[in-house]
Design a protein around this nucleic acid. Structure first.
Lengths: 337, 337
DNA sequence: TATTAGCAGTCAATCAAACAGAGTGCTAAA
DNA sequence: TTTAGCACTCTGTTTGATTGACTGCTAATA
């Protein structure tokens, strides 16, 4: 347990470093943050903080920077939750309108978070959803519109271009058959379910169904749909990326996404998960933090918004923003009911 | 007009520089490309080529690099069109399947081009298309699916979540009204047209129509839809971007897009447009080239695929790839008919 | 006359040495 | 227990010297 003075010093180091990105020296702290201690005292304390792993020293004659453990202590014990500025609140309210389907909403959310926090934002939508019903609409002789409705209220649709014309009767019959066969199927397994049906029971319609299948495969792409929305230019301006190799690594990490995905997947039980730097198992991620918020509607878990950043970031603002947005999203969902 | 020897030397400089990214010296050319001239002769010729503006010398004791004029001469007169490798051809054939609507197809095309050429690729879809008909389908008490079909065969749909329930009769009537009022409207003006109708003629349905309108605004976002698909990590590996400022500029240029858009818009009359470096009016683009291919189906112009790159790039491969893909796309369109 | 060999000259890139500045740890005094 | 003072360490920047690639020019050669 840290004593009061150490806490104050640690908090000052973290907060100064978050904005300056430069190692923080004892004099800076004594001057800027009106602590009642002399630089020498602060130096002694900083040394102790380093020895117990909360601070690091890039080299012997430099100031200190927070370690992952230091950030963790700050986040858990010292951080004061900031209120969002009116500017940010207005921006959020204007850009998250709640129009469209769940996917549209998630995209809006990702864009907004990314803009406000200036960090790449990854969206995970879980499809634990099951099929409620399928409607088939004949748009023209050779074109069908297949509408897929899930119990959660998500609506997706697929356009199937046929090779031959199809009579109205068949469309009606097909619609019935699909509904009786597929109702209750988990959305993410729809493609597989449909494929196996084609070969077994519904051979008559196989050519039509294959077209529909193709569409479903394309539109409902598997389990976790990940969208990364970002504002790369401003991120590359972070001093962390003045070394172009680091910048490339970061971009690479984001686009292969595997490592990040694993971390995000593990964050389950809590509403808000924060994984800081070396807390990540993957070494690749040792300098980065991931902050992830679970989104739920009344029926339960729907997905996550996750922010990926160098571990030097404004944790307080990030958390406030995510929480505010979570409320907003919950609100939209409850209105829909 | 350049004599034969100058042509050979210019071609060698361009081709060597394209792969090496290092200024090319007289000895390199004499050794690697089996030209029958001594380094001294080549030196003299290179000096003349520089004086007439085809080559540039970064500093007095370095080799030469092609100027924009040099690339232009190469592209117009010297370039031998390369055949695509089997690898590339297979990749293209596998990834451009032609499934889905025009927009899906365009996305496939952009991804493919971007992968093969390792460059950001921008897609422009022109909506000169006009409305053929609108269908409205009632999905549940409070949810309508509005299907918008254009004469070009593109189908879009919008989900409108209503605040109140709507009777079946009204849906039918609304559908009729919209069709008579909007048929023939250019797709890109649909939103405006609908908005003005709401206030004038169809006041009874205004609350429903506003919801639909909202959706249309969101889904059919204006005139030119631009999608940029890219593979940023590998692009940042280009030696052009070893200076991080250049990298940021490039990314910035791509995301603001204004400058690039203007160039692309101007390329109209030809099937294939190549604008090299300083040929661009915008100074921002003086080190970049844009290669843009017009795509048409039987009814005419549909859109463009444009590749943006530092002006050092494999023009021959780029052109071959775009042409091959153009054929592929034309093929898909004619099959659809 | 056209080409080429040879050589002096230029410049970028690299490396080491010198120097300034920021910040520490330790000691001794308050 | 806290603080002032000082020697020390390390980074970052500047300066100068060195190396190497390549040119332009001159004079010799085919």
């Amino acid at each position: 347990m840290l004593d009061d003075r150490k806490k104050k010093i640690l908090a000052s180091v973290v907060e100064d470093y978050i904005t300056s990105a430069e190692p923080v020296g004892s004099k800076t702290i004594a001057d800027k943050y009106n602590l009642e201690y002399s630089p020498a005292t602060i130096r002694n304390e900083m040394k102790l903080l380093e020895e117990s792993g909360y601070l690091e020293q890039p080299h012997v004659s430099s100031g200190r920077i927070p370690s992952s453990k230091g950030y963790r202590y700050y986040v858990d014990n010292l951080m004061i939750s900031k209120k969002l500025s009116m500017l940010d609140i207005n921006y959020i309210n204007n850009s998250i309108t709640g129009y469209g389907n769940t996917e549209d909403l998630f995209e809006q959310v990702a864009d907004t978070v990314s803009k406000i926090l200036d960090r790449p934002t990854i969206l995970t939508m879980k499809n634990e959803d099951v099929l409620e019903s399928i409607k088939i609409l004949k748009i023209s002789d050779k074109i069908l519109l297949v509408i897929i409705m899930s119990e959660n209220g998500t609506i997706k649709d697929v356009i199937a271009k046929l090779t031959d014309t199809i009579p109205d009767d068949s469309v009606r019959e097909l619609s019935k058959l699909l509904n009786t066969n597929l109702q209750g199927t988990p959305i993410e397994k729809l493609y597989n379910a449909l494929s196996s049906i084609i070969s077994k029971e519904l051979k008559v319609y196989s050519s039509v169904l294959e077209k529909i299948c193709e569409g479903i495969k394309y539109e409902i792409s598997g389990e976790n749909k990940l969208i990364s929305s970002n504002n790369l230019e401003s991120i590359l301006n972070l001093p962390e990326f003045s070394d172009i190799e680091k910048a490339k690594n970061f971009i690479n990490m984001l686009s292969t996404k595997n490592a990040v995905d694993t971390v995000i997947d593990k964050i389950q039980n809590k509403e808000l998960g924060i994984v800081i730097g070396s807390e990540n198992e993957e070494i690749m991620l040792k300098d980065y933090s991931i902050i992830s918020l679970n989104i739920a509607n009344d029926d339960g878990y729907i997905g996550k918004i996750s922010v990926v950043s160098p571990k030097r970031l404004d944790y307080s603002k990030t958390v406030s923003t995510l929480k505010y947005i979570n409320d907003k999203v919950k609100n939209i969902f409850s209105k829909d009911k």
